[in-house]
Each structure stands twice: as C-alpha cells, then as structure tokens.
Design a binder for these strands. Structure first.
Ligand SMILES: [Mn+2]
Ligand SMILES: [Mn+2]
Ligand SMILES: [Zn+2]
Ligand SMILES: [Zn+2]
Lengths: 170, 170
DNA sequence: GTCGAAAATGAAAATTGTTTTCGTAATCCA
DNA sequence: TGGATTACGAAAACAATTTTCATTTTCGAC
C-alpha cells in the first residue's frame, strides 16, 4: 500500500512536469520529440542532484541511441523553462534538480560522505534582503552552501562506505 | 601625499605577503624561484578578484617568458598557504583574491555591470551556525553569493560602459 | 495524407579552463 | 661546487560542455 501510494505520487509528479514542459515547448514554438520526452520523463523519475552523466546512463536504458548533446540541450530547456535548477557544488560538474514542493532552498554538503541536505529559513532570507538594501542592491537570486561534516559519525561513515562500494561496483 | 601614502601602504602589504609566502615555501621544503617571486609580487599589487589570465598578462610585463603552468602552480601554492582564496562566481573561470584585513566575507554581484561588493554580517554567520546545529552539521566553510543589480542605475551604467570600452580596447 | 520549411538529432570536432608530461634549467645543502 | 631535488615552460592531455554539420523528424499548410 505504502509502496503503491509512493509510486502513485511519483507518477502524478512526473505527469505534471511532462505537461508543464510540453506547454513550454508549445509556447516557444519548438517541436515535441521522442528523445526529449524520454529525457524529461527519465529525469523527473530520478531523485536528488543529478549529473549529466547519471542522467544519460538512465536515458540510455530507454533509448541507447540518445547521446550527450541531446541531454545537454534538453537540460538547458528544462532550466530555461524553470522546471529545473542547475547547481554547482564545489568545483567541476553541474548537477540538476527538479524542484518539487519547495520553491527555493539552500544546501549543506558533507565533505566526508557527500550527503547534501536542504534547508530554507525565512529569517536568513530576510536578513539577506536587509543587507542588500543597505548596499543599495536588489537581489534576483542567491546561492548559499554550507560545507562541513555530519555530526552523526555513524551515519556519515555508513554513507561513505556505501559510496565506496558503489564506486567499486561501477 | 595621499597618493604617496597609498603607495606606501601597498608596499607594506606586498612585503608582508611576500614574507609570509617565503616562510611557507621554507616550511614546505620548496625552493625560492625568480618566477614565483615575480608572480606573487605581481598578484598582491593587483586589487579585486583576479582571473588567471589577468594575472598572467600582468606577470608577462615583468617577465614574458613565464607561462600559464607556472602561474597556475603558484596560485595553488598561494591557496594552500592560505594567503589567497579561490572564488567561483557564476560559472566558468576561477578568480583569486588575497584577503587583506577581513578574514572572511561574502559577495553581492551585479549582473548588469559586474560590480562585486563585499560584506560581512555576524548575525548572518550566527544564523547559519544555528541552522547547521539544528541539522547536526558542523560548518567548515560556506559560500554566499547574492546575484542581482545595483539600485544606482547611473553608477551601474557608468561601470557597464567603462567595461564595454575596455573590452573594445583589448 | 503529402510536402516542405524549420527544427532536432547524433557523432564527431571544437572550445574552454585547467592539469600533466617531459626534457631542460635553476636551486641549494653538504 | 657538485649533484640530488625541485621548478620551469611548451606542448600535450584532460574533462566538461558546446558547436558543427550532414541527416532525420516534426508539423502546419495544402
Ligand atoms: Mn537541492
Ligand atoms: Mn572578495
Ligand atoms: Zn557526512
Ligand atoms: Zn551594477
């Protein structure tokens, strides 16, 4: 039951995003394609902060002929349509997340186990606005990342080991 | 007089950093070289958030034979020695800043004119700590960037035009 | 349905920013 | 003043992303 409900919710979420994307494509006078449909429905079924490579791997399971270029191009459209946010934690590769309920949030990143947790605090947001105002500055968007370590070393180690095992297997 | 004093202060600042770097090099058992000296004394004479290319351009005025590799390598040493912070605003290239008086600060970046202003607010820092604690998380470092626009459109336009002119000249 | 202009695809090449390699040169301690 | 160690610099390698270009697909007009 619980599992069934979870899947149900997922499907609704995916359907919703697919519809929103279709609407965007329409509005921009672009064309609906099999590849784009595959990519976005794959993307919105994944959780977390997804890299292009991770996405492509999943996409290829549905259609192995789809390549990097189309995935990159489709992700740009998703960002442009505001259905997806691009993130750059640390240095290197971009990650993408379909923002679900929370419109905006910031991140804490554990440098040990890689855990990314999300938070939102209105006081923090308000304080940023106040500081901007004091500097005669108008904020369009911001980015706050806290880098550090989990205090629960047990859980942190567990995640770290799991990650190492996955890297081994892959 | 004012000009003279400013230069004087600059020179002290540069000397101080040169000495600190020399000490670092010593401590790590590395070697003092003409190139590294040129690069760091050039770097600490520049203000703001410097890209590798900008630095190399200046460095070449003192010694045209110095190349990218040595500049990159020396910047890594400067970061490792804690005399310099690496920044990544937006996407793309790294920028470096020698932190002077203020140990830590965050940034507001105007998307129109490129102006970067710096700020530090203890309440903001404290609030971050509180939020981390609530999530059983220990912060090592953080990064906060506010992207937006100057409210003073006059000044903003002036900077934008100046930038365009510079790009033209270059 | 068919046509055809416009848009999209995918493989490969190009770009960008950065790191590494490797043969040569400089440093510095015994 | 060796001579082992470290650094340099040009060029090659790299990694992530973008662009090119020849071919295929889409979709509105007929
Ligand atoms: Mn997130
Ligand atoms: Mn700064
Ligand atoms: Zn952790
Ligand atoms: Zn501005």
């Amino acid at each position: 039951m619980a599992q069934e409900q979870k899947d149900q919710v997922d499907e609704n979420f995916v359907k919703e995003k697919e519809a929103a994307f279709a609407e965007f494509i329409q509005r921009k006078g672009l064309k609906t394609t099999r590849q784009r449909n595959t990519i976005i429905s794959t993307f919105f079924r994944l959780r977390g902060h997804i890299s292009v490579e991770e996405l492509l791997t999943e996409v290829k399971k549905a259609n192995p002929r789809i390549g990097y270029a189309t995935v990159y191009r489709t992700l740009h459209l998703l960002v442009e349509s505001n259905l997806v946010d691009e993130r750059r934690f640390g240095y290197g590769l971009a990650r993408y997340e379909g923002h679900s309920d929370v419109e905006h949030h910031d991140h804490m990143i554990c440098l040990e186990c890689g855990m990314i947790s999300e938070f939102f605090n209105p006081r923090l947001e308000a304080l940023q606005e106040k500081l901007a105002e004091e500097n005669n500055f108008t904020i369009f968007r911001h980015r706050l990342e806290l880098y550090g370590a989990c205090q629960d070393k047990e859980a942190c180690d567990r995640r770290k080991n799991q990650k190492a095992a996955e890297a081994q297997g892959a």
